[in-house]
Simulated assay, not measured.
Amino acid sequence: MTDMRGRVRALAYRTFYRLPGRWKRRIVRTFQPTYTIGAVAIVRDPGLTQLLLLRQPPGAGWSLPAGLMDRGETPVQTACRELREETGLEVPVERMRAATPNAIVHTSGQWVDMVFETEVEPGEELVVDAAEILEAAWHRLDNLPPMTVSTSRLLAHYGIGPYKEYPEVLEA
C-alpha cells in the first residue's frame, strides 16, 4: 500500500512540474494558505519612555499605527504611509528601522506584520484622520492604557506592555 502511494505521489509531482508556470501558480495558490501582509510602526520618544498609540473605532482599546501593504509598496513604505495617514507624522523611510523580530506571523489569522521602529519628539502635532482614527496620543510605557489584544500580543515580542512577562503569548 505504501509503495503504491509513493508511485502515485511521484507521478503527481512529475505531472505538476510539466505544467505551464501560470497553471502551477494557480494550483499552489488554491491549496496553500494565503497570508495578508501588513506593516506596523512602533513609535517612541527619543528617551524611549513613551509610546504613540491610536484609538480606532469602535474604540475598545488602543493600538499601533499599522495597515495593509498596497501593490508595489515595500513594508517600510507601508509603515511610513500608515503613520502619515493615521497621525500626520512624516517619517522618512531612512528613519525607520526593522524591529527584531521584523516579521510576526499570525498563523491563526493568516497575516504577517512587518514591524518597524522609530523615534519622534512627542511635541510634534498629531493630525488624525477622523474617519479612521478616534484619537492619537503619547502614553508612558510604565502607564499604558487598555490596548487591543493583538496590540498587546505584538508589543510583548519587544518587551513592552501587559503581556511582556508571559512567554506563552510569544509562542501562540
Rank of each mutant, 00 (worst) to 15 (best):
L48E: 13
M96N: 03
E165I: 06
Y166E: 09
A98H: 04
E82S: 07
T2E: 09
A131G: 13
Y163L: 11
P101H: 03
Y163Q: 13
P101D: 07
V128C: 09
G159T: 04
S152W: 02
P65M: 07
T2H: 09
M4Y: 14
L89K: 11
G109T: 03
V43K: 05
H157L: 12
K24R: 15
G109F: 00
R18A: 14
Q50R: 15
Q56E: 15
T100P: 00
L48A: 11
A60K: 07
E117W: 03
R22I: 05
R97F: 09
M114Y: 13
R140Y: 00
G61M: 02
G61Q: 05
G88F: 02
A79G: 07
A99N: 05
S108N: 06
M1Y: 08
N143Q: 15
T15N: 04
R29W: 04
A98V: 08
L134P: 01
F31M: 09
P58S: 08
P122K: 05
T87C: 04
A39I: 07
L52E: 11
E124Q: 14
G159W: 09
L83P: 04
E117P: 01
V120H: 03
T78F: 07
L52D: 05
Y13R: 15
C80V: 12
S150I: 10
V28L: 13
V40H: 03
I27Y: 00
E82P: 00
T74A: 13
I104D: 02
P162W: 05
Y158I: 13
P58F: 03
G72S: 03
E119T: 15
Y166R: 12
T15R: 13
I133E: 01
G159N: 04
P122H: 03
L11W: 05
V105A: 14
F16G: 08
K24G: 02
L154K: 14
Q77S: 08
I160Y: 02
A66P: 00
A136N: 04
V93P: 00
E94N: 04
T78A: 15
T151M: 02
I42Y: 01
E121K: 10
T100C: 09
Q77D: 12
D129N: 14
I104M: 02
A103E: 15
L54K: 06
C80M: 13
G67H: 02
A66H: 10
G123C: 10
V128F: 03
R26L: 14
E135W: 00
T74N: 01
G159F: 12
L154A: 11
N143S: 15
M147S: 03
R7E: 15
Y166W: 08
M1S: 12
Q110I: 00
R7Q: 14
N102F: 03
E124I: 07
A41T: 12
R84S: 13
A98E: 15
V91N: 03
A10S: 15
Y163H: 09
A10H: 10
A60L: 06
L154C: 08
G72A: 03
L170Q: 13
E168K: 06
R25D: 12
L155Y: 04
